[in-house]
Amino acid sequence: MALTISCPVCGKRNGYEFRYGGEDKGPRPDEKGLTPRTWCDYAHMNACVAGVQKEWWCHKNGCGVWFTIHRNTLTNLEVDGPEVTS
């Protein structure tokens, strides 16, 4: 609950206003030649990084935009880039 998130439109706001959209896993895979296994990996499996991860958030109680941030999962704080800084 202590998390604050920087929305690209509205700026730094209280984490309550956002909805988590999961890890950044890249675009949807092509359906041709997709095995159930690879689909399941894409849809349901997560890297669960202990450190900085790139992830999606939606400013649901604000402007409604989806965007990515980097968050250190160990401190639950937003960080500037993919490197562990603090």
């Binding site: 909805r19 959209g21 890249g26 675009p27 949807r28 999606w56 939606c58 649901k60 409604g64 935009v65 989806w66």
Partner: peptide, 12 residues
Amino acid sequence: TAEWFRYHTRYD
């Protein structure tokens, strides 16, 4: 619904 549309087209 709006969130749903935008989520599933977020990479496009």
